[in-house]
Nucleic acid binder design. Sequence first.
RNA 1: GGCCCCGUAGCUCAACGGAUAGAGCGUCCCCCUCCUAAGGGGAAGGUUGCAGGUUCAAGUCCUGCCGGGGUCACCA
Length: 580
Amino acid sequence: MNLFADIRSAVVDALGRMTAEGLLPSGLNLSNVAVEPPRDAAHGDMATNAAMVLAKPAGKPPREIAEGLAARLMDDPRIEGADVAGPGFLNLRLAPAVWQGVLRQVLEAGTGYGRSDIGAGQKVNVEFVSANPTGPMHVGHVRGAVVGDALSNLLAFAGWNVTREYYINDGGAQVDVLARSAYERYREAHGLEPEIREGLYPGDYLIPVGEALKAKYGDSLLDKGEQVWLADVRDFASAMMMQMIREDLAALGVRMDVYSSEKALYGTGEIEAAIEELREKGLIYEGTLEPPKGKEPEDWEPRVQTLFRSTAHGDDVDRPVKKSDGSWTYFAPDIAYHYNKVKRGFDQLIDIFGADHGGYVKRMKAAVSALSNSTVPLDIKLIQLVKLWKNGEPFKMSKRAGTFVTLRDVVEMAGADVTRFIMLTRKNDVALDFDFDKVLEQSKDNPVFYVQYANARINSVLRKARDAGIVVDDATLLAADHSGLAHPAEQALLKKIAEWPRLVEIAARNNEPHRVAFYLYELASDLHGLWNRGNDELQLRFIQEDVAVSQAKIALARSVGVVICTGLGILGVTPVEEMR
RNA sequence: GGCCCCGUAGCUCAACGGAUAGAGCGUCCCCCUCCUAAGGGGAAGGUUGCAGGUUCAAGUCCUGCCGGGGUCACCA
């Protein structure tokens, strides 16, 4: 289905024949042989670097290899031209019918066009969001949630077996803080003055938790010491927070497959087992860390700790897994959790972290490397900050939480579709400006609108055509004679559509869903361009006097629409049919 | 100071190790008897922070600097 992969196969076959004829040595490594769209359309439709890659190992000048390759590729009816250019590129020109055939592929496969099997059914776990259950999700979580979800969609589309997972950090001190904060709201629910001391969570969102605690416990917890109520209130409050977080995620269109609890790891022996596993590999020892080089913390004192020899797996220093009081550091359950993922049989792990967690990448990779004997790759994507803007100035206030802007605020102000798309208009490791005014604007400055508008225009064509009595169902469009689609603007659009399967594979291989958003923008741009040329050149309009000609052109428009809908589906954005 | 990310057109950003580094905004010029002008076409604009290295080929990989951000042992 991937035309570029198909032609690459032809190139590899031709190279094989050259080897058989003794023109090339056998056993050449072809992994770097690529077939890709040239940057400059004047270079033809596709280009291969085969001759340059093989020149050295084959001991022949690149141009000589390229000439031989060209001659053999010309036997392929799909290939109309093969010219050696530059330092040894082989530029290929494909028969128009090949490009027109793309329409049949799209109209046959529908939104399955571009689906790939490069994932080969491998099990991949995508862990994302993993916010502490101490309050509503805020802006900082939105981007990670969207990237994780879109990446999951993308990988599934490319043939991976994907599990979306949320790791609930409910085992640390911050849930105790939550409990104490909720307890004050519980007192408040009884008409007492809450004491929201420094360090507690002040947000109004805990008021309902206080009410619920009152409903459940009546006044039985009042005037009791913390040791009486802390555990119960903690569990109760964090469960309510998780409920709220699930609803927040749902509002953004994100659904998790698995929620894993940090707390649930304690007391089950899982942490101990994971550390024991490392110990058996000789990676756990009692020792003292050197103080950080250069800038030594004020209160530094040498201390004997239980350490994980993460330096054996690429980390810079070894990392403590136990505190001096013998309890686990936060890292220990993280190790156990990742070990758990390895044991569940995932072939590949992906973590989506905030950029402020960049310091944990090496140690986490070291742990997974150690525990999986380097068999399970862990890719960690760091998500940079989102800066909110409104009316030309930074937007910080939230009516709901007071101190921070929540996910809900963003979704309610911008809508889930717009929010999701914009969050994917930057690579994950670059900071992103989210301007409420701009993202809601209906103009070409706004990429969401721009892409949606292209789709709306296509639907408009289909409506008009139907009104004119032209049959435009996919089966009819599929059967139409597409050979008239020869104008450069039409061919350009066909080629762009042909790139979609390749784009999917590249994006999936690199775990980079933003590429889909950029592609859709380019595809929409080509559509708008063709559309506008129809203003001057009537023969480029989709709807013509001749029904058969119309159907061919509408097949092109419809195919663009299919790809836009497919791409938006991967991003988790609902296509807009009409934009009145 | 160590480590991580970023540095590309005036601005915001793309570019699986491939050819003459691309879009959008902004600036300038132009296009509505026409399926949605909520759009489109064109011009100008670059030593890809600097210096080396690897490679047939480097914005991309390696080393060292410069600048910005993040992070740095019993917090998660």
